[in-house]
Amino acid sequence: MTFSLSVSRIKQRQIAKLIADGKRLDGRGLTDYREIKVEKGVIERAEGSARVYLGRTQVLVGVKIGIGEPFSDRPNEGVLTVNSELVPLASPEFEAGPPGEESIELARVVDRGIRESGAIDLEKLCIIPGKKVFIVFVDIYVLNHDGNLIDASAMAALAALLNTKLFNYEVVDGEVKIKPGFTKLPIRNYPIAITSAEIGGKLVVDPWLEEEEVMNSRITLIFEKDGRICAIQKGGGGTLTKDQIIEAAHIFQKKAEELRKLVVES
């Protein structure tokens, strides 16, 4: 059992014992998500935004659009950058300061899902090849941490991108001029992250904070719209077996389908 300052030994044992019997402290089944609520367009100043409630976990994602230079190896593509802030108001464990490894991992996993699934049609974000492209800044803002930040952030990021508008422009003498009106950000895939915690040899989907404190390890699979895996990340200092992983992949694939509907149709 992992050492934890915030969950007492007695509660840790209780959580593990229940899971061994296929039950959970909050009454959920092992593959049930907490209640999910998605609100799009919550920050008017941002070009796109969404807030996701996953039980008591709350994540806000804001998308800002800028104009800048493309990467030299991809002159015809817009640029995607994903950043995350574990804001101190979200948890007594979070501190102000430069991003730590947890925050960087969170942003990079969400980034991988969006990038590898080809969710944004980056070629349509090219304004002047090699010179000017749209830059999509996705900022993940964790507001209340009650576990499973990856899934909540990935959903919020997708919802915010679906809600993002690009300003109209024209190119006059090599300069970009902004015109009135907007078009939608070209989205062509919908990546959904599914995370489980491994506790006492069993995988529980959508762990809440106290389950994360007890877990040995964590596994996230991100699925694109056709059911292919587009990113994986194992976390935590425990182990998993190959059979556990393969079984999880099949269960998660179906879960992703359910969640995708919820995010896209919200």
Binding site: I219, K234, L240
Partner: peptide, 19 residues
């Protein structure tokens, strides 16, 4: 010990390809 301690992936794989 038959234990996986790191697993990451990026790209696109079907479940069969993943296995």
């Amino acid at each position: 010990l038959n234990a996986v301690t790191l697993l990451q992936m990026d790209g696109l794989l079907t479940l069969e390809e993943f296995e």
